[in-house]
């Protein structure tokens, strides 16, 4: 991973990339991104992270 900070001196502390896997790389995100690009007509999808599971009337 390249340094997030670029400059003409060395900083006191290093900046480390976040531990968690980048969300944008997982299959779900890749699919939703690809579908979004072709949205329209019969191309529609559920954005899973935006689903409000706490809705009272979900049955």
């Amino acid at each position: 991973m390249s340094s997030y900070l670029k400059g003409n001196f060395k900083t006191e502390k290093e900046v480390r990339p976040p531990e968690t896997k980048k969300e944008a790389d997982d299959l779900e995100s890749r699919f939703e991104r690809a579908a979004l690009k072709r949205l329209g007509g019969s191309i529609a999808f559920v954005a899973k992270k935006k689903v409000k599971w706490t809705l009272d009337d979900k049955g």
Partner: peptide, 23 residues
């Protein structure tokens, strides 16, 4: 003495921003 954090390029969250500011 200059450092640049290009948040628009990296598109990282607040965790990295905090590290950058504390560096």
């Amino acid at each position: 003495l200059v450092q640049v954090f290009d948040q628009n390029a990296w598109r990282t969250g607040e965790e990295v921003l905090r590290q950058v500011l504390a560096a």
